[in-house]
Amino acid sequence: MRQVPRGSIWGLVALALCVGFGKARAQQVSRSVGAAPDYSQAEVHILPVQGNIYMLVGAGGNITVQAGNDGVLLVDTGVAPMSEKVLAAIRSISSRPIRYIINTHIHPDHTGGNEAIAKAGMTIAGGNVVGDIGASAGNQAQVIAFQTVLDRMSSSNGPQAFPQAAWPTETYTTPERKMFFDGEGIQIIHIPTAHTDGDSMVFFRRSDVISTGDIFVTNRYPIIDLERGGNIQGVIAGLNRIIDIAIPEGIAGADLQEGGTMVIPGHGRLCDVADVVFYQEMVTIIRDRIQDMINKGMTLEQVKAAKPTRDYDPRYGATSGIWTTDMFVEAVYKGLAAKPGAAGGN
């Protein structure tokens, strides 16, 4: 059995080093991990999901591939050094052009491949579009994301970690954007202030697959990027939205509470709604405990000392690495303690 977490860890290392959770966090990552990751031995694995959908594992964050007669649509692109291997994996699924990339959020373990993979694609463009801005408009795949992803990637206030060629070419600002591609309706759903302030989930309606980005992962507590507008309440709202959309399989009138809608998490294994329910219950219970402690006037240090996650730590916790249990508790505490509207920031 192949081990996947290495790629995921590397993706997060890239996340912390390239975009970072601030300089101090990047230094912490550097200390704990050491040299830059070597991707030469990393592999991309392809898991057929259902309908038109495949899941690529091992290139940082999970990548969702929708392949059909109209071409290829991707949800996220993994880390930059894995782009060639990701492209090779996509080519083994479909020889048709890569038309669209949807970024679930800004972090480079999900957007690092934007530049190389978008260049390998081709937008459906013609008529007035080509006439107005030239034939080059069609020379790359379109990159779609929530507006704040572009805002942050192109920000002049911070380090220019993202090359312009990796930026979204199309953004949306509404709660939801809809499109139709490869014979199915696709809903791009914005979840405000969750993992970041620019999160999107993608629901493939005919294939019945949801690609969640890092609002839902299976291998750790949810990362809440407070500096980029994340908040525990948004993560829980996102998990509840997945549960609301997903429909489990049934046989002869019996709801089996598994199967049916498939859920591709930002990191970790393929899931269905029952897995999301377990995770949502865990995150909600921890949120409720920390809120109760805040209501009792406990300080952050007191909350950490009380270990409100201790029953889930063997499964999701970490004492080292880029997202420790302490960091998670701190992010939950600060998100809950902040006045409404004060969570996150630029």
């Binding site: 059995m1 192949r2 081990q3 996947v4 694995h45 898991l47 899941m55 594992v57 089996l256 598994e258 199967g259 498939m262 970790g268 294994r269 393929l270 899931c271 269905d272 029952a274 897995d275």
Partner: peptide, 12 residues
Amino acid sequence: RPHPPDYALHTW
């Protein structure tokens, strides 16, 4: 037959 990879779906 072998068991699936660890990134495959888990079931009841």
